[in-house]
Design a protein around this nucleic acid. Structure first.
Lengths: 324, 324
DNA sequence: CTGTTAGCGCTTTCAT
DNA sequence: ATGAAAGCGCTAACAG
């Protein structure tokens, strides 16, 4: 079943079928209806490899994430998809699992014309160069030195404000739980800046810079810290999952939140509302980030020589019970 | 940059380039190396529309989910992807957002040869017929009456066992919080069966059959039930998010878990471990479900006339503090 | 083992 | 507004 079959079946040239299938406007309405009727009758669907071999655009963008098990991405993906629909684009999600080989495969998929471009959500920095010849945009985990199109928040500023808030509600000995990924390092920089500004000496024993988004790890580290007899009255966690682990450990250890220890998380994930003590957290405007990323990529495919855009989206501190 | 450019550049026929690019074994090792060198030098990538126009297989499967924000799917997707790698297949994830129009688009994508087949994770029943002419398998949310390839647990049995466990630990007045989707209805059927078997009369005021996976709803319903003065000493929630809402509401209402009220959830999501009281829950073997789904689809693409397989995977009750 | 050739299904000139 | 015909990049069949 191909365009020629339809052509013979209804006695119209393949070119006209093609025009109808692509919604070109230089087709007589009566002819259009006649073609559509035949297409429906035969159940014909345009063969995409055939079309894409000729046509430039696939009307598909890929989104690349580490893994969909990070709930942070779901809303960004959704907002990208919403924008895509408006522009008659479709989205396919690809998981990298942090494998460079897979990043390479996705870059090649664009070069191979499987899709028009790709949005890299919090990509591994080493992988970015693979995409230099294809339309792409990086959303999240960007560095100040990036020269490609980017969308991100100001993580250092966000970390600074979160810790400033902790200090404002009375915390002086503040634990920092972060990751050794780009934004984690930026947030930790903000943490140190806020301490310095308040005249609080940095205590290395309160910094855990190598934790990932792991509930059990957050729980364990705080349990150990209490057991070690290290005094602290505030926690800045670089994400809500760590913060939840910390809070549950505090409660299990007989501490009250926020009376004894104030806690701030990051990302405003559902966990921050589901925690026994709802968590004060930094919200990244995920909807706006996704929309902006789509728009930049869309423009990029129209004009590949456009200057790189570096968009910084404003974040927001959401105050909940864990600090007040 | 196409296969002919490479051909001219290194003075070898396009057919041989093609053979090398596809890892055919009827190529002289020296020739293979010579071609590879030229390909690397030129940065040539096979044009996929061109290849797929001739070749039958895209080596791509789609996975369709409602939305990636449901953490239940992440591990299934991961295990599918792991299997895919073994068979040199690639996966693209598509979100339906429950829109029939989008299901239709995904079915057409297969017909249009964008991909070889599709795994439908917990699809809308009305959408399944769209896929009748393409290789597909349904994983989750299946009905006893389905005649296509399916992979699922026995939800009625799982609900029955969960409630039997509640009764076993002393609960008599058991709330049931479920959804009006297929597996929710099956689990509620299991709930009623367990009550009947224990000689406990079904109390309609304890059944909330229309709740979705919404933390706030779970919290609210239990808060209201306590306010209404309705006595209960057990809760069977059809998923862990509802269970978490319920437990937090109980604690806020001054009840002890499990001493006053025992709670069982469903799915063994991360929430069930992160809750203030770790939750007893029914684990669906997601890894096995994903692997099986891949395997069935893979076989299906090899032999489209094979009989439909209906695989039922065994579940497991994970006992945690919320019931003992 | 390698080359030649035809043609996959579509869209796009170019005619009319 | 419609049709005829060329050709996108690749692989399979055939030849050698």
């Amino acid at each position: 079943m191909n365009i020629n079959d339809v052509s013979k079946h209804i006695g119209v040239s393949p070119a006209t079928i093609s025009r109808v299938m692509n919604n070109y406007d230089n087709v007589n309405p009566a002819m259009r209806e006649r073609v559509m009727a035949g297409v429906r009758e035969l159940g014909y669907v345009t063969n995409l490899p055939g079309r894409n071999l000729r046509a430039v655009s696939t009307k598909i963008f890929l989104i690349c994430v580490h893994s969909i098990d990070n709930p942070f991405y779901a809303e960004i993906v959704r907002s990208i998809e919403q924008e895509a629909i408006k522009h008659d684009y479709n989205i396919m999600i690809c998981e990298s699992y942090l494998s460079l080989k897979r990043y390479r495969y996705f870059a090649d998929s664009i070069k191979a014309k499987r899709a028009d471009g790709i949005i890299l959500l919090s990509p591994r920095e080493e992988a970015i160069e693979y995409f230099k010849d294809v339309p792409f945009v990086v959303c999240g985990e960007t560095g100040e030195d990036y020269t490609c199109d980017t969308v991100d928040i100001d993580s250092e500023k966000a970390g600074y404000e979160a810790v400033k808030h902790l200090i404002g509600v009375g915390a002086r000995k503040i634990v920092c739980m972060g990751g050794n990924y780009k934004s984690g390092i930026q947030r930790i920089r903000g943490y140190k800046k806020a301490l310095a500004e308040a005249g609080i000496a940095f205590n290395e024993r309160l910094l855990f810079g190598e934790l990932f988004n792991d509930y059990e790890e957050g729980y364990k580290k705080i349990t150990e810290l209490m057991a070690a007899g290290e005094a602290f009255d505030g926690i800045f966690a670089c994400n809500d999952i760590l913060a939840t682990g910390a809070i549950n450990a505090l409660i299990a250890g007989g501490k009250r939140v926020p009376d004894d220890v104030r806690v701030v998380g990051f990302d405003d994930l559902i966990f921050s509302r589901m925690c026994a003590v709802p968590i004060t957290t930094v919200r990244q405007p995920r909807k706006e980030m996704g929309e902006t990323a789509f728009e930049i990529l869309f423009e990029k495919t129209k004009n590949r020589d456009a200057d790189a855009r570096r968009v910084v989206i404003g974040h927001e501190l959401i105050i909940r019970k864990s600090t007040v």
